[in-house]
């Protein structure tokens, strides 16, 4: 029996993709690999899931960058460079090239990656119109209290970060302790953030990265010829989840627009302004938030990608 945890609730398309993968695994392994899915965070948040995998109480989990960073801080390179990536193609490109390094580090901590996903972008939701960086500077911005370095960096860029817990985001938007928070649109819709913060800045702030990981010990107990089949089934599920996630991001934005969300699309000139602000923080992000080698590699790959002729 192989237990897999995910925050995605039962009945969602993510869950169904994983379920289909589990059914295929059962067939491929002749019934030896029997996947039970603990959906909807039934076994706790992502830190709990990582802890449980370490204790062999859970053998696999579909994690976002939050959970992956619990295992290996290097993964944060994909998620914690504000406006580092411009398009999802760039994310794909860098993710693909960084895989060997990241997977090697995760393996050193005892985890095997079966697939990576990136499901769209984190966007800024605010209770007042935000177009230029100066608009955001007037607001109180959420910053995770577990990450003091990030708070300092926000401040150095002239913003007004409020260090609170992620669990306090929604109530704090309500009480106006914070005015703005970068959030995945899918979460914003589910938590009805748009009723409190009805403005969304249409800037690709940071990509949402995730991966399916399995305990190395468990994985290596499975015969090699079976493993290759399981990897194929996992890749299919991974692609499904990726395309669903991207579609759902757009769907949640349009659903929220229908109930009153105002999306602000900055002009190229304003976008350039945002980029300048973000880039001014990069020297501090390198090393303090994202491990320096990961940061350098990511930037090198991005330069490489942008220099290459358009495909």
């Amino acid at each position: 029996r192989l237990k897999l945890g995910t925050l995605a609730p039962k009945g969602t398309s993510y869950y169904n993709s994983l379920k289909a993968m589990g059914d295929q695994w059962r067939v491929d392994s002749g019934g030896a690999v029997n996947l039970s899915i603990f959906a909807g965070g039934a076994q706790g948040g992502e830190a709990d899931m990582v802890g449980m995998m370490k204790l062999d109480s859970m053998q696999a989990a579909m994690l976002t960058a939050v959970g992956l960073s619990e295992i290996e801080a290097g993964v944060s390179g994909l998620q914690n460079i504000p406006m580092g990536f411009r398009t999802l193609e760039e994310v794909d490109f860098v993710n693909e090239r960084m895989r060997p390094l990241l997977e090697e580090r995760l393996a050193a901590k005892g985890f095997i990656v079966l697939f990576w996903t990136n499901g769209g972008w984190v966007r800024f939701f605010s209770n007042q119109l935000v177009n230029r960086p100066d608009d955001l500077r007037k607001l109180k911005v959420f910053s995770w209290s577990g990450f003091p370095e990030q708070v300092a960096i926000y401040k150095s860029a002239g913003f007004n970060p409020i260090a609170i817990e992620t669990a306090d985001i929604v109530p704090s938007l309500q009480t106006k302790l914070i005015d703005a928070a970068p959030l995945p649109p899918f979460f914003a819709m589910a938590a009805q953030v748009d009723t409190r913060a009805p403005y969304m800045l249409d800037v690709n702030w940071a990509p949402l990265v995730g991966a399916l990981v399995v305990r190395k010990d468990t994985w290596e107990k499975i015969p090699v010829e079976v493993r290759t089949k399981l990897v194929v089934a996992a890749a299919i599920a991974g692609n499904e989840i990726k395309s669903t996630a991207r579609r759902e991001m757009n769907d949640s934005v349009s659903a929220m627009e229908k109930r009153g969300l105002k999306v602000t699309k900055p002009s190229d000139e304003v976008l350039q302004e945002w980029r300048q602000v973000c880039e001014s923080t990069y020297p501090r992000i390198r090393g303090q938030v994202v491990p320096a080698d990961i940061y350098d590699q990511t930037m090198k790959l991005l330069t490489e990608y942008r220099a290459a002729p358009a495909k």
Binding site: G11, G40, A190, A191
Partner: peptide, 14 residues
């Protein structure tokens, strides 16, 4: 409200 809505099955506001 948050947990019930997160499943995308129903939508409940605070």
């Amino acid at each position: 409200a948050i947990i019930a809505s997160s499943g995308n099955v129903v939508s409940v506001s605070i």
